[in-house]
Simulated scan of single mutants.
Amino acid sequence: MKLPQLVDRFIAAHNSYDSKSFVDCFTRSAIVHDEGKTHKGKEEIGKWIEHSNEEYRSSMKPLKYEETGATGVLTAEVSGTFPGSPIVLKFHLTLKDDLIDGLKVTG
């Protein structure tokens, strides 16, 4: 599957548990919504992904990607050390200046 470079970087950083490279995919003012919590800015996003990496050791396999204007939806199979693994999740991306400005993870 051919993915935009940013989405490839996002997946690669996630799958290699590289928190710094993961955070580098986001704008300074980005907002992430996941598991009922909101994380604002690179510092909070960094803490969120570090906790997620330690807690769940998840990896994602892209299944589908659709982009319209400044929004994209990545559908991926996510597996890790969490109940119900693997599951299919949708990563709703808001894009700005070739970075992710917003991310909402849904089931």
Rank of each mutant, 00 (worst) to 15 (best):
I11K: 04
Y17S: 11
S19E: 14
A13E: 12
P86R: 00
F91M: 06
L103F: 00
S21G: 12
K20C: 02
K42V: 11
L95Q: 13
Q5V: 14
S58N: 15
S79A: 12
E55L: 09
L93C: 01
D101R: 00
V23T: 05
I11D: 05
E35F: 15
I49M: 00
A30W: 00
F22Q: 06
K64A: 11
A76N: 06
E43H: 11
P4M: 08
C25Y: 02
T68F: 04
V23H: 03
G41K: 03
H92K: 15
G84W: 09
K96L: 07
G46H: 01
S59H: 10
D18M: 04
T75R: 00
N15G: 10
K40A: 12
W48V: 05
Y17L: 07
K20I: 14
Y17V: 06
I100C: 08
V73H: 01
N53V: 09
V105C: 02
E44M: 02
I45T: 10
T27C: 07
G41T: 11
V88N: 00
I45P: 06
C25K: 06
L89F: 02
A70C: 08
K64V: 08
L89H: 06
T38W: 02
E44Y: 00
S16Y: 02
K90H: 09
Y56C: 15
T106W: 00
Y65V: 04
D18Q: 06
E50H: 10
G80K: 05
A12V: 15
K42T: 15
V32G: 00
G41E: 03
D34P: 07
G36M: 09
